[in-house]
Design a protein around this nucleic acid. Structure first.
Lengths: 221, 221
DNA sequence: CGCATACTTGATTCGCTTCAAAACTCGTGG
DNA sequence: CCACGAGTTTTGAAGCGAATCAAGTATGCG
């Protein structure tokens, strides 16, 4: 756990503090770590797997407002109530900290606080980039951007420019990320496949066949 | 400038540091403090007026990704390049800090850094709430939410439940906040007026006539 | 007063959603 | 090994909400 997550670039003493605080925890695909509206009890580091952060309207429409990958920080220090539900999209390993003691540790360890500030600023930039996507992009642009994003996070390496990866999201969840319906996502993916930009060897697998063409379809972002 | 902005709850010594660093600056309505893609030279505190943060697609579609009000922090420490253009929606007064020295001051003054962390976390929550709005709300819900939001920020007080305020945004800018077109914004506002939920005494003035009914139209948020 | 800009309103179009059903995937048990 | 069934994905047809196109009407400034 040393290289990964908040812990990179901490001193030994700070690492010791975190280790004393943290408890390992697993979640199975589909399990929820925290429900929006409940008391905020924990923060965590994500060690492996993918988490979603989601918000819902009163009548049940869902929007995924963030995806978390290994080494990402999980949770929201300094808030008493959970704003966004946190749910596992794959089986997940976490290092969980009780929130209050974690906050105390932050106050006492400037480097940790500094690191968290940088990450939060980066997360804010990302959230705003996604606002542009949600507000101003077409369905095709959304799907193309999404696939490039996933490739960036999951595509181990590009052999001869082609990458294949395993989608951690169902079509329905992709729709909830992009602010679309499941049918529209499916149609756009089929179109990209028909046009030879991607391959869909199986339901959950995606191959990026022509990254540059895909970037053009994603416009802008 | 003491009560407002980052400076609240700083020590005298820290205030002195900031004052030595900061330079007052005015912007007229429409002027831009920083262009996306340019070198990030400054951070600032907003003293009066309203700023927009905006992003654009390659082909010129715009999305406003944030609005800043008096006492808000402006800019993005620790990034070399400006991610989002910063433009004045009204005449604006700022207290501007050169970025690098400001970053150095942050490192040396834990309380300032801590304060900035809290604000950044809050901004992230807000950005994510706006993602739900952009991705999953109808035009009517978007406009109703927007008006309630503005009332919260600008509506001095409610006399007998009615508040009137001066919109700092044109219809076109409202459209860019909500991910709609100018015509749709106009139509929805007219509808809300016809239904007696709001009044539009002049182009830029809005009166909230029935806050609860408006909240119902805004659904969820 | 006249011009430019902003806002409203109407008619039409289009992209995405909705509704409906077929095809596929995958785990289970015969 | 294959048949079965639940869940997921694809595909098709129809409808609707917001965009686009196009005037027309305020508003405000020189």
């Amino acid at each position: 756990m040393r290289d990964i997550s908040l812990c990179g670039s901490l001193t030994d003493e700070e690492l010791a503090v975190l280790n004393r605080l943290g408890r390992p925890r697993q979640l199975a695909r589909g399990e929820t770590l925290a429900w929006a509206g409940s008391e905020a009890l924990v923060c965590a580091n994500l060690l492996s797997g993918v988490l979603k952060l989601s918000a819902m309207t009163a009548d049940g429409r869902e929007q995924i407002v963030g995806l978390l990958y290994p080494a990402d920080f999980v949770g929201r220090p300094f808030a008493e109530e959970v704003e966004h539900s946190i749910t596992a999209l794959t089986d997940v390993e976490l290092c969980v900290f009780p929130r209050k003691p974690f906050e105390a540790a932050l106050e006492n360890h400037v480097r940790m606080e500094r690191l968290l500030l940088r990450r939060t600023l980066a997360a804010l930039d990302e959230a705003r980039a996604r606002m542009l996507m949600l507000g101003r992009k077409t369905a095709e642009e959304k799907v193309a951007s999404f696939l490039l994003d996933m490739a960036g996070h999951l595509g181990g390496q590009q052999k001869a420019c082609e990458v294949t990866f395993d989608l951690p999201l169902t079509r329905s969840q992709i729709a909830d990320v992009l602010g679309l319906t499941i049918e529209t996502v499916s149609r756009q993916m089929t179109k990209l496949k028909r046009d030879g930009l991607i391959g869909l060897p199986s339901n959950r697998l995606v191959t990026i066949r022509n990254r540059n063409a895909l970037r053009e379809r994603a416009e802008s972002a």
